[in-house]
Design a protein around this nucleic acid. Structure first.
Length: 242
DNA sequence: CCGGTTGTTCAGCG
DNA sequence: GCGCTGAACAACCG
């Protein structure tokens, strides 16, 4: 489920709980949240892959990791990790990471690295990338402090769309190419969002899980690239920016 | 039916 | 203290 655009959808679909009082909190999370019963939710936000339920001076951070899921006004069979019940409706999370932070959410997160945020700042992201010359671009794209919300699928697609080899070092990319990657990453996040909403995401994958390059028909390479050793599908022929 | 993974954190080790 | 590795988490798809 969970790359940034999926969490963005979660945020949008839970806005009905904004300004609602939490009547009951349940679930098998080890985090003690009982004191939040009776408190009003001031906002439901996302930062990359983080989903944030905001109260006065504090917030709950949900991360769905690889297998997390949620239900709005529905339940699953499996044990609920965190359940928030309201006068009308409920919000349930399964197999996710739950944290509670007594901080102001805006002091905690920098939204200028979230491509789906109105505060996203491409020039700031550009500077961050340039300050990592000795890293491979495939790792930088997955760095949540630089591209918050970009996951392995988005990484693969952005590298293909920009024709950049995943193992290319930042230091050998031109300023123009870096800016291209930044812009395409944001644009692809919104495409991902749009296709996910329409349940047509998979058919738009160009390189991820592809057998042959859609551009030149050469067999797609699959390697575990970079420090992250995450799987990367790419075309040796087209992604030759070196 | 089994193998692999759209992700992160942390223990353990050299 | 460091970087690196692998485990743990545990559900769904093909």
């Amino acid at each position: 489920m969970p790359e940034g655009p999926s969490i963005y959808i979660l945020k949008e679909d839970t806005q009905l709980f904004k300004n609602q009082k939490v009547l009951k909190i349940q679930g098998n999370t080890k985090v003690d949240l009982g004191h939040l019963e009776g408190k009003k939710i001031l906002g439901l936000k996302s930062w990359g892959k983080h989903f944030l339920i905001c109260f006065k001076g504090s917030f709950i951070r949900i991360h769905l990791l690889m297998f997390g899921s949620y239900r709005i006004n529905e339940r699953k069979e499996s044990p609920v990790r965190l359940s928030l019940q309201f006068k009308k409706g409920e919000l349930n999370f399964y197999t996710c990471s739950v944290k509670y932070l007594e901080e102001d959410v805006h002091a905690y997160y920098n939204w200028s690295v979230d491509p789906m945020s109105e505060e996203w700042d491409p020039r700031y992201v550009y500077k961050l990338i340039r300050s990592n010359p000795e890293r491979m671009i495939c790792d930088v794209l997955m760095d949540q402090e630089i591209f918050s919300g970009v996951g392995n699928i988005i990484k693969n697609e952005v590298l293909f769309l920009t024709r950049v080899h995943p193992e290319e070092m930042v230091s050998s990319l031109t300023p123009k190419k870096i800016m291209k990657i930044i812009k395409v990453a944001r644009n692809y996040c919104f495409d991902f969002y749009k296709w996910k909403r329409a349940f047509v995401l998979k058919k738009h994958w160009l390189i991820y899980k592809a057998k042959k390059c859609p551009e030149c028909d050469v067999p797609v390479s699959l390697e575990h690239t970079g420090k992250g050793k995450r799987r990367t599908f790419f075309c040796e022929n087209c992604q030759n920016s070196v």
